[in-house]
């Protein structure tokens, strides 16, 4: 069983931030994945989706669900991350006031993504964008 899904994400569109994560959550529930696993997956995905809305201009989320795992690839066009190691440090943030007003931007997202995934990889080019790959086993 392999299921592939693609979702578009628009930078700055907070009204719809989380739409993709919500759809993935419903899909995983239908597939009868362990609820605790679903929670970790969608929290990581939601953090990453909010990151695109908060920092990038646009992005695409590709989901691939196989028999025993889910692979989530989030590719955005945006400013990129100059120093990924620094961005991973809890409390470090470059978020705008608007992002903070939505309850985010505390510099906790990337470390929370790491905590909730089995594999996580970030590559980024400044001025071009960022690719985040996350894998969780069921």
């Amino acid at each position: 069983m392999i299921i592939e899904q693609t979702y578009q994400v628009r930078g700055g569109d907070f009204a719809h931030a989380g739409d993709a994560s919500s759809k993935v959550k419903k899909l995983l529930k239908q597939l009868d994945v362990d609820p605790r696993k679903i929670k970790s997956i969608v929290i990581a995905l939601y953090e990453a989706e909010v990151n695109i809305v908060a920092h990038a201009w646009e992005g695409i989320i590709r989901i691939l669900i196989d028999r025993d795992h889910i692979r989530m690839v989030l590719e955005d066009k945006g400013p990129g991350i100059a120093d990924i190691e620094q961005a991973m440090v809890e409390g470090y943030s470059t978020a705008s006031r608007e992002v903070r007003e939505m309850g985010f931007g505390a510099g906790m997202g990337l470390s929370n993504i790491k905590r909730n995934t089995d594999q996580m990889e970030i590559t980024s080019r400044v001025g071009e964008g960022t690719v985040l790959t996350m894998v969780n086993y069921f």
């Binding site: 989380g18 994560s21 919500s22 969608v42 929290i43 909010v50 939505m102 309850g103 985010f104």
Partner: peptide, 15 residues
């Protein structure tokens, strides 16, 4: 005290 759509989304994701 934070009332916006992301409060509800966050709750949805966090069960």
């Amino acid at each position: 005290g934070l009332a916006n759509i992301q409060t509800i989304r966050t709750a949805e994701m966090a069960d």
